[in-house]
Design a binder for these strands. Structure first.
Length: 217
DNA sequence: AGCACGATTAACT
DNA sequence: GTTAATCGTGCTC
């Protein structure tokens, strides 16, 4: 059982835009353990701790949506760091990305997994009352649990009073974060198919660290 | 205008 | 392990 949800709930500020205006692989690694925060329409919060992300970097990366240059769909990736890029895929799923690097330099980080903290009952409702460990353990599941869709595309993660943001969360040792190839790149040529741009830590490990840490400001 | 496929998921055998 | 669901996007004709 995870400790009290209130433990990692903000009175904190969103991470600043400067957090995202760095090399994408550094940002991806540093996102592990951070807190994803959705402010609901009623002012309450839905939050979860990130434990799995993937980097997609530039027009040369043949797995990246920017591989064919700038289009209507991938345009948010060319926007300023901290921009939200949400896209629709497989005819039914939304994917959440955080745009990195300077404006004009297309790169983003796909959020693939997070550990529910606050608003868990709301997440259960949105996820058909699945077991808690299945609420946000995939990129589309996470978007469903947070009710993230097209409406969030092009919003900013670092604007004041933004509805979607990322905050400080848990301290995670770099050597506890595993690097692997990205998931689901079936028709992508090498070296992009195998390049280890997925960053992940087991949720269980996060829980242990969480219970051993004191309050997060 | 038509087509193949996708940064997935859930429900199967 | 396999496969259907489902539709926007980008490419070809």
């Amino acid at each position: 059982m995870i400790s009290s949800p209130d433990m990692v709930v903000p009175p904190s500020k969103p991470l600043p835009c400067s957090f995202y205006s760095r090399p994408t692989l550094d940002v991806a690694r540093d996102l592990i353990g951070k807190l994803l925060v959705r402010r609901e329409e009623d002012g309450s919060l839905t939050t979860a701790i990130l434990y799995e992300v993937e980097a997609y970097i530039g027009e040369d990366d043949l797995a990246c949506h920017a591989r064919a240059g700038r289009t209507r769909r991938n345009d948010p990736m060319y926007g300023p760091p901290g921009t939200v890029y949400v896209y629709f895929t497989y005819g039914m799923h939304w994917m959440l990305n955080a745009v990195t690097e300077a404006a004009g330099s297309p790169a983003a980080i796909l959020v693939r997994g997070a550990l529910p903290q606050t608003g868990i009952e709301r997440m259960r409702c949105r996820r058909s009352h699945k077991p808690d460990h299945l609420l946000s353990d995939g990129p589309a599941k996470l978007c469903q649990a947070f009710a993230i869709n097209q409406a969030f595309n092009r919003t900013s993660l670092c604007a004041p009073d933004t509805a979607l943001s990322i905050h400080e969360g848990l301290r995670v040792e770099h050597n506890a974060i595993h690097k692997t190839p990205r998931i689901g790149l079936n028709n992508v040529p090498e070296p992009w198919k195998s390049i280890p741009w997925r960053f992940v830590i087991t949720p269980e490990k996060l829980s242990l660290q969480q219970t051993s840490e004191s309050q997060v400001k």
